[in-house]
Every structure is written in C-alpha cells, then in structure tokens.
Computed example of a mutant assay.
Amino acid sequence: MSKLNLAIIFGGKSTEHEISILSAKSILKHLDRSAFNLSVIKIDTAGHWWLIDESNLDEDAAGEPVTLVPGSPKAQLISLKNGSVVETLDVAFPVLHGVFGEDGTIQGYFKMVDLAFVGCDVLAASSCMDKDVTKRLLRDAGINIAPYLMATDNRIPSFEQVESELSIPVFIKPANLGSSVGVYKVKTKAEYDEKIKMALTYDHKVLIEQLIVGKEVECSVLGNEEPKASLPGEIVTNTDFYDFESKYVDSNASKTQIPASITEEQISEVRSVAVKAYQTMGCQGLARVDFFVTVDGEILINEINTLPGFTNISMYPKMWEATGIGYSELLSLLIELAINKHKSDASLNVKAREVK
C-alpha cells in the first residue's frame, strides 16, 4: 500500500501558539512513519505558512514560504518563492488550538481546496469554539450545563445580578479561547469589575459561570457516524482552579487520574453523555468533552474541545491509551477517519450535482 501524503500544520495566530508546538512535537514523535510521507508546516504568529524541517519546530519562520491551493485532482502545496508544486497532499492534520485553528476557519479553507483533514467540519468546530453557543445547543438537547450569564462589550451584567443569579464566587472566561487563557475566579465586586474588563480584551463575548463544587472530569470521543467514548479521566489540582500555569507550567500544581475516581455508574453516564453531546454538536473525528461531577452526583458538561492538546501530558491521548488505543494507533485512526469523511462528503456532492 502506498504512503499517504500528510501535512502536519501547527503554530498559528492564536494565544495557544506555543501549546500547538508542543502538540506537534508529540504527534511527530508518535506518528507511524511507514504509512505517511510528511510535510511539516508551521504557521507563524503573523499567519504566514512555512514548510520546515521537523527539527526546527521552535525556530521563527525558518523554512520555505508556501501556500495551499486546489489541484487536479489533489490539493497542492505551492512554493511562494517560485510558484512550483512542492507536494500534492492527501490529508492534513491541523495541530492548531484556539482561534484560526479550532474555530472553523482553517476547516473552511481545507474544504475550499478539497483536502481531507483531521477533526470536525466548519459548523461543529465554530459552534464548539463558542462556549455560549455550545451551552445553548446542549441545553436545548436536554443535556445539563453549568448555569451562566453572558457579558459583551455593550452589555455587562451587574455584580448584584451575578451574585443574585449565580452566587459568588464565579468564573469569568472568554467565550472563544482555550487552555484557560483569560480565565479568572472572582469573589468581590472590585475583582469582578476588573476581571470582566480584562476578559473582554481577549474576546467580545465573556461567560460568567457559576462555581461548581465537585470533580473535574474529561472524556475523549473518537469517530464519525458511530463515535465511541474513552474511559474518563480526572483533573486533581492543588491550585485554586485548573488554570494555564497548572496545565503547562507547574508540574506539581495538578495531576491526572485515569479512570476518574467516580462510581462505575457515573463512568458509564459520563461516556454516554459525552457521545450524546458530540453528536448534538455534529462533531466528527475527535473531541474532548469536559464535565463537572458534583458532590451530589450530578453530571454537568463544562465545554467541548474539538482539537484538544496532544502534548506529552495531554488527556485526550492518555484517556485513549487507558482505554486500549495507543498514541500511534490513535493518530492513524484519526487520519483514517479524515479520509473516510472526505470520501463521504465527495459522494454527497456528486449526488447533489446529479439531482440538479
């Protein structure tokens, strides 16, 4: 069987640029090299694309400037130096977290150039990226969510309203960021007034969420038409909450436990609700569904990440490893799902043209 031409695309313009680099390093370390011809593309913080050697992931714009265009019959990677075709591609793996990578933006680009890609399509990616939209859709589907209020540049709930409807303390978080960037826990009116303004420098929409006392539990989901859920894992943190420092900087601030220390019945329910939420949002390929399990045993969804971290400490691959799918096998499955999704979409397009 011939090798697939695979593009690993990482970096990007989001605040999670550095986390993307760590994810890309881990993926490249575990990828089955016998199955793929690799093109490694780094998007710098200005949005420029560079074809690089994988030994230079940390270097700034070191490589050949490239772009991606439609080809016949495959998408083509084009050199911006001389306009030549560098490679024809079969599939892309966008290792891009946050805005421009996880919000439907690059997914739309891949669809425009007719390139198979790992992960959710445009609508699911953009809907899950916006935590407000996610919560509304899950709530309409009868799935429990943490109570919240919304703030925008022009409409900020008063501290008194927040205290009345949600109680204090609350969490403030941008609607369209990840990795706990711009997330604050507030207990006083002074903190609230300050942190709301700070959060609104990251996004035009900000969630004000009720504090949920309980366990932070995550579950990995994998698949297209018939998704499966992994054993759930638990985040145990020694800090006030699971912030950016706890995730990526201070290794002693938190630890993970797989499976989560909840009952067998709760594990089963978390897995079932994770799949239901995944299907409700129209996800394909992969997603990580984050939960709260309260002290009373109630299960609430916190958020859904359609392109979760793949670093050496990231929960998505670790939960699948605990469920019986190793990191290398997981990557191959994700790429296979991407190819199958692309073929299915192409078949639908052909049928649509025939009807017309």
Rank of each mutant, 00 (worst) to 15 (best):
G178C: 09
G178L: 11
K173F: 10
Y202D: 03
M150C: 12
T256E: 00
K111E: 15
G63E: 00
G309Y: 12
L307T: 13
N312Q: 14
L31R: 09
D32M: 06
D90Q: 07
A24H: 09
A61D: 01
W50A: 09
D60F: 15
E218W: 08
N305Q: 10
Y148V: 01
V99E: 06
V289D: 01
L166W: 06
S20G: 15
S2H: 11
Y192G: 07
P308E: 00
V295G: 02
S230C: 08
L22Q: 14
L333N: 14
L207F: 09
G63N: 07
D345I: 03
L200A: 11
L123A: 14
S20M: 09
V133K: 12
L31K: 11
L166R: 05
E194W: 01
E18I: 04
Q210K: 15
K135Y: 05
K318I: 03
G182V: 10
L334A: 05
K356G: 13
L337C: 05
D44T: 10
L6Q: 10
L57Y: 10
R139N: 11
K42A: 12
T256R: 05
I143E: 00
S332L: 06
E59Q: 15
G108A: 09
F93P: 01
A7Q: 02
V213P: 00
T280R: 03
S164L: 09
E163G: 06
L334E: 00
N340Q: 15
L333C: 04
S251R: 14
I325L: 13
I8V: 15
V40M: 08
A35L: 15
L80S: 03
G282M: 06
N82H: 13
L177P: 04
G223A: 13
L51I: 00
E18S: 14
N312I: 10
V181I: 15
I313F: 09
N82F: 08
E216F: 10
Q257M: 14
I52C: 10
I299A: 01
L77P: 13
L123R: 11
K13Y: 04
I19W: 08
A92T: 08
P94I: 14
A338V: 06
F159A: 07
